[in-house]
Design a protein around this nucleic acid. Structure first.
Length: 270
DNA sequence: TCCCAGGCTCTCT
DNA sequence: AGAGAGCATGGG
């Protein structure tokens, strides 16, 4: 991978698989929009970004090498070689899924944003999840100039369920408030969770109302970068029943979360 | 009208 | 411990 800085843009030449469209619109992050000029626009880690792809070239517009290093390199998981990981998947079905959708990666999102976003995802569909999160950010995030940050737990912890009524989040509003309060108070400590073994980290997240097994696995995978997390939703449940009734193939062990993302996308798009 | 959506909580066995 | 109802909202 090579990188240059030109006219205020960071331009990347890839030597690994990365498909922006797949990464940003495969149900793991909810704040990216594609415009007809061929760019993706969104916000992560309180940074606005416009980014486009042309083959092996990715252009990060109006940013700096410093911000790229600090934010986007990690967000797009650029220090992990996905070709090497996918090469380890020798079972037939996962090979098909990976071959059909090369370039899916696990985004390393902000921990709090992932927790909150996947609380909102419960018994919900992706377009509506995006809408609720958009209203949450516009209503309570910081103005970054035409875009809004994901509101901090500290900010949301001062609100009531009634304050969140405009989100139309339904029964999830009370869970958002509970999560914000527990994170803001340190009762559930994100810094501590980062250092805990997987099961203990998950147990901490399960203290939050509205966080069950699936949401905890999603938060650990997409927020904490724990690629051994394995969220099981209705689609993955179908995959397990149809393809792996006797359990996951051994070849996925350790990076089940990555394999899961390919399988999820594949099964959803059949 | 019913069913479903990247589920969870609560209650009842 | 495991099963089942109820839950807010909106699209098909």
């Amino acid at each position: 991978m090579t990188q240059k800085y030109e006219n205020g843009n960071v331009i990347l030449t890839l030597d690994d698989d990365l498909d922006l469209g797949l990464c940003l619109d495969c149900g793991q992050a909810f704040r990216w929009k594609y415009d007809e000029s061929g760019c993706w626009s969104g916000v992560a880690h309180s940074q606005k970004l416009r980014v486009s792809q042309n083959g092996d070239t990715i252009t990060f517009y109006d940013t700096t090498p410093e911000v790229f290093e600090r934010v986007w390199s990690g967000y797009f998981d650029l220090n992990r070689n996905y070709r090497d990981i996918v090469a380890l998947y020798t079972e037939e079905n996962i090979k098909i899924a990976c071959a059909k959708y090369p370039g899916i990666r696990i985004l390393k999102q902000d921990e709090w944003e992932a927790i909150c976003s996947f609380i909102i995802s419960a018994n919900n569909n992706i377009p509506r999840i995006k809408g609720i999160i958009e209203r949450l950010c516009e209503g309570f995030g910081e103005d970054l100039g035409g875009a809004y940050s994901f509101p901090s737990a500290q900010r949301l912890s001062t609100l009531t369920v009634e304050d969140l009524a405009p989100l139309r989040a339904g029964f999830r509003a009370k869970y958002i408030i509970d999560a914000a309060q527990k994170i803001a108070s340190g009762e559930v400590d994100i810094e501590k969770i980062k250092a805990l073994p997987f099961d203990e980290a998950k147990a901490e997240l399960l203290k939050i109302k509205g966080v069950g097994e699936k949401v905890a696995q999603c938060a650990l995978l997409y927020g904490f970068g724990r690629v051994e997390a394995f969220p099981v939703d209705v689609w993955v449940k179908r995959i397990l029943a149809e393809l792996y009734p006797k359990g996951l193939p051994q070849c996925m062990y350790g990076t089940q979360g990555i394999a899961q993302q390919y399988l999820f996308h594949w099964r959803r798009n059949i």
